[in-house]
Write a protein that binds this DNA or RNA. Structure first.
Lengths: 210, 210
DNA sequence: CTAACGTTTGTCCATCCGGTCAAAATTTGC
DNA sequence: GCAAATTTTGACCGGATGGACAAACGTTAG
């Protein structure tokens, strides 16, 4: 009655929970919450299903823990967007960092996309609370830059959305990007091209000079 | 043996199949393929499960039919991208049309996103064939504009990707956009703001003039 | 050494879900 | 009006899946 779930005390618990979360990230991101089975996760984690359920009592608990951890790393680049540097440089760096995250953590991106696509049933409070708060802050910073004439006047919220959309596209829609570009290009050159393109798009737009 | 599936002859068949597809679009787009159940679709279509299975023998058949129909309408705006008009105007129109589709057909967008996110297991051939072919064509058109000095020189493929990403974001990540923007704005003003922002982004970029 | 505690496993259960089937109800062609 | 064809339904099946449980196994502290 006193220990409804085993507390994270022992070293083993901490390690096993990490193994499970890593396995769950793989399985959830590839199949969605509903599409993933506990058996799959258990196998990927190298343990039996009852053993896994000893560390996480319900499938949803795994998912919830995963989403909480995810959001922190996921929003780190936006948190780092700061008032100190030159605005255009700051934005450029933000775009590059987001694109690197799409390249290096595509599973996290897809897990998140899956959750949002289904209507965010499990993380809606986080979106309306933590996420909205952060975006409001950063939108204010960007607005300051606009008022100082450092960047063109436009909607800072939609600017953030467009950076999210374009960068995460390379993780979430990876198979489509690959299919369209064909087998010729390497992963690296694909991301280099994307980085170069996005930098040009956000800084210069499409209109030719003069 | 001769009629493996009922042929689409009678009026009833045609009508019922349409009702089922409409219901399936609703359910699939909200829950994904795996997350959707035949019972849910049958209920949304106002008929019993065996009755539904009389028109589509397998769950996958419904999904496949849906995806085939979808892709046509979905790619129509890109097909309409033409060499005749002024390049910047053409691109502006394309962006606007895509954004309108995200507003008017969000379920279709989410259905498609769901499929791609899962690795496009059911439509990979379409991506590598029809879709790639179309994008190759249009990328060539855009490249022509670049060579004629009508728009800045950049990667036409990533340009198309970025238009897809930014516009579909408003359908696929709708709940997140709403959560961040808060309850203040109406649907209409949200899309107007987005349209205005995207037009400015793609045409002018962020750098201030002069 | 041993008792207490933490970990692992095999077995089992209830429910859900995709799909079948035969019989009943309805529509259609003549 | 009636026979053939089409449509609809209730009952059912087998496999998958989330989760419970108790017994066995291992570890640790005294």
């Amino acid at each position: 009655m006193d220990t409804p779930a085993p507390r994270r005390r022992t070293r083993i618990q901490q390690e096993k929970r990490d193994v499970i979360l890593e396995a769950a990230l793989e399985v959830f991101s590839a199949n969605g919450f509903r599409g993933a089975t506990i058996d799959q996760i258990a196998e990927a984690a190298g343990m039996s299903k009852p053993n896994l359920l000893y560390y996480f009592r319900r499938k949803e608990d795994i998912h919830e823990t995963l989403m909480q951890r995810l959001l922190d790393t996921w929003l780190a680049p936006l948190r780092a967007l700061d008032d100190v540097g030159e605005p255009l440089t700051e934005l450029k760096r933000y775009i590059r960092r987001k694109l690197e995250m799409a390249r290096d953590f595509p599973r996290e991106s897809r897990l998140f996309a899956n959750e949002i696509l289904q209507g965010a049933p499990r993380i809606m409070p986080l979106l309306e609370g933590e996420l909205k708060g952060l975006v409001d802050d950063k939108a204010a910073v960007i607005k300051g830059w606009m008022q100082a004439g450092k960047i063109i006047r436009t909607d800072p919220y939609h600017l953030i959305f467009s950076i999210w959309a374009t960068t995460q596209h390379y993780a979430d829609f990876d198979v489509q990007v690959r299919a369209v570009l064909g087998p010729g290009r390497s992963d690296e050159s694909r991301f280099e091209d994307a980085a170069r393109f996005l930098e040009g798009l956000f800084l210069e737009g499409l209109k030719p000079k003069g």
